[in-house]
Amino acid sequence: MLTSEERTEIEAEIAHYEQKQAACIEAMKIVQKHRGWLSDDGIRDVAEIMEMTPAELDSVATFYNLLFRQPVGRHVVMVCDSVSCWIMGYENIRQYLMDKLEIGMGETTQDGRFTLLPICCLGNCDRAPAMMVGEDLHQDLTPEKIDAILEKYA
């Protein structure tokens, strides 16, 4: 069941569109924000308020890479792997992160603290290499900087 908070936020989004279904992506993002990820229950809850079948909604969910249909860590680390970051040495950054967190891309640390994902160009190419941790942007990355950055996320 949706919490009343989730329901209120979703209804506010529905009001922005001529057709209800248009708010379904926003609605999934809202549930994901509150619950960390979109479980089958989450999909079912959103489908109900959107007047869609869970299968219909899931076919939308699976299209978008930032809707997580699997559990993720408390902080999602997204490393830009697009061309300007590639030129500026993103491969070293990615390797450093994998070694430090002892996980591969797409994996979550055992303590559930970090999930590591690749992401397309973050629109920060003049300060490459770049990554986001949760909602925060980090730029001009070096291994030393990464140590300090990760410490900020408990």
Partner: peptide, 25 residues
């Protein structure tokens, strides 16, 4: 303000409209 959920193709104008309608882009 509508905040997207990822995928480069959403920037293509007709895919963007599909996405705004709550569909696959």
């Amino acid at each position: 303000l509508h905040i997207s959920a990822g995928r480069y193709i959403c920037g293509e104008e007709t895919a963007l409209l599909s996405s705004l309608e709550g569909k696959r882009a």
